[in-house]
Design a protein around this nucleic acid. Sequence first.
DNA 1: GTGGTCTAGACCACC
DNA 2: GTGGTCTAGACCACC
Lengths: 125, 125, 125, 125
Amino acid sequence: MLKVQFDPAKPIYLQIISEVKKALARGELNPGDKLPSQRELAKMIKVNANTVQRAYREMEMKDLARTVRGQGTFITSDEQLLSNIRSKMILELVDSFVLEMVALGCDHETINKLVKERSLKNDEP
Amino acid sequence: MLKVQFDPAKPIYLQIISEVKKALARGELNPGDKLPSQRELAKMIKVNANTVQRAYREMEMKDLARTVRGQGTFITSDEQLLSNIRSKMILELVDSFVLEMVALGCDHETINKLVKERSLKNDEP
Amino acid sequence: MLKVQFDPAKPIYLQIISEVKKALARGELNPGDKLPSQRELAKMIKVNANTVQRAYREMEMKDLARTVRGQGTFITSDEQLLSNIRSKMILELVDSFVLEMVALGCDHETINKLVKERSLKNDEP
Amino acid sequence: MLKVQFDPAKPIYLQIISEVKKALARGELNPGDKLPSQRELAKMIKVNANTVQRAYREMEMKDLARTVRGQGTFITSDEQLLSNIRSKMILELVDSFVLEMVALGCDHETINKLVKERSLKNDEP
DNA sequence: GTGGTCTAGACCACC
DNA sequence: GTGGTCTAGACCACC
């Protein structure tokens, strides 16, 4: 039987945190970098300033960012923590990929073969 | 600089089509199977019947399904087409995975290694 | 026995498509031309905008038109396709005419004779 | 510019008369034949009995039919009149066909050629 | 301004 | 019961 589940549309503040983490993992954002001001980001992504504030507050609670009154919000400089975030994201990505592939009926051998093939394909052109 | 893009929230009717395709790829839905009636699925997933109808109509236009007035909507029996859908889904999944991993700074060797590791991990426990 | 079938009143969205095709066949509409906006046409012909949208969407799926977000819907520039549409319309018209004439008890000779006669009549006065 | 005109959905009683005339022209209905009773036809085509009555009344006024109390409504036996009806229908059909073909850009020669071709095609298979 | 999605609900045709 | 068409109107994204 068919079962459809919708993106329960992840709350915006969590989406913001995810994006910050991705930017970190990709090196687009670095330790110590200043984040856009709350107002600025709110305008950029057309979201209520309170939503941005909530995202920043949560990041602070996880020691991912630090807010300095009158100066702004900054990415932590704790490289260890950032490295952990990156590793965790990568593992999550791999695991969910493998699970999905298995759900589609691929065995581990096939998965490995396909990944090898496609990473070469995406390499040359 | 940080750039946040929200899920442009894939339209519901496309999500429905995706779910049907996934169900097919996983063998939860088979050639010739009857889909839930428009009203039934609409109630199940709390969506307007018109939205379900649009999904079904698009599937019909792609020959993925066939609608019979007064009877319902049925998955095509064209096994060739269904097999193509599965292959395409798998390749897309692999490619987007590889791309994301590369964006996260992993080289192809690392990707292969991690996939091998995690598919074993997921195997035993 | 008498059997009456009502015009199943061809759906409006199909009538719109037919009219566009006729306009093309007659050269009143040309490759690349912009169609009226959905809302505009809707107002012109006193029909809901959704109905017009459906017509335009179907034309797009048949490659008869191309829609650009924020700009409008345009007739394809594929002259080959447009030429095919015209030929197909003409043949359909001729065939349905011949069939109807035969149903009315005319043989092919009579049909030819009448067509010749009437096309001359319509020519002079 | 595009102009769409809708079928103004010919009134049902006129559709009934047209169908009777067509049936006559095709020989499916003959001089003197009994038409279905008003009630019967109303049920058959799911239409209000008054609508059928109006159609029958108009046919009577044109001497196309004759109603006998307690017996029913009968097609006239006036063969002359029936023959006229048939001729008129045929001429109308030919004329509207020729006009439409001209609108589609066909000249008279082309029309004649196509009619000849297609009436042969429809003959053999 | 443009198109795109979605809802709620009416009404129809076919079974 | 099934699907098909249509409306009125909300709200969104892109220009």
